[in-house]
Nucleic acid binder design. Structure first.
Lengths: 254, 254
DNA sequence: CGGCCTATTGACGCTACTCAACATGAGTGG
DNA sequence: CCACTCATGTTGAGTAGCGTCAATAGGCCG
């Protein structure tokens, strides 16, 4: 049964993909989408812990997450790692490798994950032929830079609770955009990963989760997070200077 | 006299520009460079403290720094700011605005600065016509993402001294690339800016500068920094996982 | 010369890290 | 099916690093 589903999803075209509005196909017409679809290589699902690419490997393709999630990190000489991002369906990976011809970071699946592979050479040619695709590509690249700016902002203004709040809100938004509940979701990453990403110790993250529960902000069971008081979470994150207007709008709408 | 020099530099073409190897013209042939040159608008110098663009303003152009330096920051609702980067000659600004049609950050000159304005519309067209330009553009964008990853790595691994060391090394490299001394340079930004950028308090930065002097690593007079012991600085920065191999090579060469 | 801004230095307190023990759940093999 | 192990997460105690507050020094400009 599972296999049938997987085979089916392997055949999914860009036209039929529910992520097309988030991903590269956005604003392409049918014939253009077919041409994009032609260069997309849909790979078999990769399991939790498998690498999509590793630092130093030759750069050939960009990847778009189709399902599951991926963490991207820089390994340090001391054998540790610094996570620079978590990627959800519809998001592009490997953008930092276009400068050189090798990957400057590694990407590993946090759960069973499927991706679309976009050979860079073909992408370049197609972007040349389809201005709309080029534009959308630049848009996604620009978005990546923007979200990293936001991350820098967060890491710059210390305060652990603010960082975690902003992180959770960010996830909440991204789940909502993808049609999932913004108030209840499963974290695909470990506490260790969260701590690493936010520049905190694991223990601090753990303590914050319990404190947020005591304050009635969250309910947490293992990796299942339920946001009980969105406004408190927003108030915390706003302290970091994160722009939460769209979330506030969402709250008042409901 | 000054005015004559300025007028002269205002007329500088991409072909004659000493930064062409760092900037967009790289790897373009003569005729292509002329076409790029045609769309470049060279603006009068902007003075220290003047804005190149501000958050919320409509996005029309990218900017390449020609001389001087620029700080880019996100203003927070609380009236503070988070600096996300300092830009030196040959570097592009405004990349994060391509997603929307408004700037998502502000850019202000740290000293008297000249920039080349690249109307985005024209850039897109020209990139379409000149694949080499498009490639170099993507390269610079990719480089931007890469350097922000490095920044995230630095802010993630705390330790104030390591951050400052990595920051100074980064500047040193960039000065060297531009033909200036990697061992002695003027900081165009205030201690306040450095602290903000590195996620530290001004006092901590100040204390670190004195400590680095006591340790014989630096000599600091106001904003003039002289690196006395590059290897110690590298040792500190490497602790952060910053890849310093190219700097080590440079040291052994000299 | 006086005012202002930037930078430095000192004293103190708090946040978050470290070390350590313990709890819980998942996966494995008998 | 249960006991075992390992990975993951939680909680506690102690501490160090860095931020905050405050005072002072030095440079720049009118």
């Amino acid at each position: 049964m599972n296999q049938i589903v997987n085979l089916k999803s392997l055949k999914t075209t860009c036209q039929a993909c529910s992520l097309s509005e988030l991903c590269l196909p956005r604003s392409l017409d049918d014939s253009e989408m077919v041409r994009l679809d032609d260069i997309v290589q849909r790979k078999r699902p990769i399991k939790k812990g498998e690498f999509l690419f590793q630092v130093g490997q030759p750069f050939r393709s960009l990847y778009a997450v189709r399902s599951g999630s991926v963490k991207v990190f820089l390994p340090t000489p001391s054998g540790e790692e610094q996570i620079v991002g978590f990627h959800m369906p519809g998001e592009l990976l490997g953008l930092d490798a276009m400068e050189h011809d090798t990957h400057s970071c590694s990407a590993v699946a946090l759960e069973t994950t499927t991706v679309c592979e976009l050979p860079y050479q073909n992408m370049q040619e197609l972007c040349h032929q389809i201005p709309g695709l080029n534009h959308q590509f630049m848009s996604l690249v620009s978005k990546e830079i923007g979200s990293e700016h936001e991350m820098l902002l967060m890491l710059g203004k210390k305060m652990a609770d603010v960082r975690l709040a902003a992180f959770l809100l960010n996830l909440s938004c991204r789940f909502r955009t993808r049609g999932f509940s913004p108030n209840e979701f499963n974290l695909s990453m470990s506490r260790h990963d969260i701590a690493n990403y936010l520049g905190l110790a694991v223990e601090t993250v753990s303590r914050l989760f319990t404190r947020f529960q005591e304050d009635g902000i969250l309910e947490v069971h293992r990796r299942l997070v339920t946001i009980r008081d969105m406004s408190k979470l927003v108030a915390l994150a706003e302290y970091a200077g994160i722009n939460c207007q769209h979330i506030k709008d969402m709250i008042s709408d409901s």
